[in-house]
């Protein structure tokens, strides 16, 4: 029981370090958007997700509608459903419903990646250990970024505004290089998004992201339907 927890902690340390720097960028962005240090930290603590939080802060800053918030979070985070589905197939017998309710909170891209690479079945303690350190890194980084973002010289904090986007590029570029289908979806989504930004400017940012992503993914699904083994990566 205990050893599983610490194994999860040790597997989670690289995730923790990564989250520290990325969430630092989120903290800066949140404060720049007019949020308090406390609000930024709470958002990180209760969401534990990068892209969704960044989009959420944009909606809060713009005073967007709640339905927009719901649809944006649904669209951006729907990938977690696939990951949760995939992980649910390899859970240990000890993973009772209360444990599932608790551990599902911590399904992120990186935790999913490490967990699905494990050969043995996943125990609750193992996942809790990993989620625990990842959580520490994510929330600490956010608080530091939000607080120190005001202390840092403007030239540093404004440069940090690009951190999260840099991470997004690091997620989408390598598969685009490997698979033509992903490349086409990525380019289509960017093209529609750019169109909204400069031509159909009446559409708000959140909805522009949703429409761009849904259109590009539907195009990808029509042109390049995936085989079984690809769909659950």
């Amino acid at each position: 029981m205990k050893s599983n927890f610490f194994r999860g902690v040790s597997h989670g340390i690289p995730i923790c370090l990564g989250y520290l720097s990325v969430s630092f960028g989120f903290g800066i962005k949140a404060v720049q958007s007019g949020l308090s240090v406390a609000a930024a930290s709470i958002i990180s603590a209760v969401n534990l997700t990068s892209a969704g939080q960044a989009a959420g802060v944009d909606i809060i800053a713009a005073g967007g509608a709640l339905i927009e918030m719901i649809l944006v979070q649904l669209t951006i985070n729907i990938r977690y459903s696939l990951m949760a589905l995939s992980l649910s197939q390899k859970l240990d017998k000890g993973f009772t419903t209360p444990h599932r309710l608790a551990a599902s909170y911590g399904i992120t891209d990186e935790i999913f990646a490490v967990c699905s690479a494990q050969k043995e079945r996943l125990t609750p303690s193992y996942m809790y250990g990993m989620i625990f350190v990842a959580f520490l890194g994510w929330v600490t980084g956010t608080t530091l970024g939000a607080a120190a973002g005001q202390l840092l010289p403007a030239s540093v904090s404004s440069a940090m505004g690009i951190v999260l986007y840099g991470m997004f590029l690091a997620i989408i570029v390598p598969p685009s290089r490997k698979q033509k289908s992903v490349l086409i979806v990525v380019l289509a989504a960017a093209a529609v998004s750019i169109l909204f930004r400069y031509v159909f400017t009446a559409v708000s940012g959140g909805f522009a992201v949703i429409i761009s992503a849904v259109a590009a993914s539907a195009l990808g699904a029509l042109l390049f339907p995936v085989r079984d083994e690809e769909a659950v990566e």
Binding site: A51, A54, A55, T75, I76, I78, R79, S81, L82, D109, S158, A159, G161, I162, Y165, F168, L169, I171, I172, P175, S176, S181, V182, V185, V186, L187, A188, A189, A190, V192, S193, I194, R197, Y198, A208, V209, S212, A213, V214, A216, S217, A218, G220, A221, L222, F224, P225, V226, D228, E230, A231, E233
Partner: peptide, 28 residues
Amino acid sequence: RFFRSFLYYIPYAVLSAMTLPAIFYSTG
């Protein structure tokens, strides 16, 4: 199969749409 494919592409499409063109305005 369509829905599975759609879900497969969603993360890449979302991140791409969020990054472009917003990244060009991220540093002021």
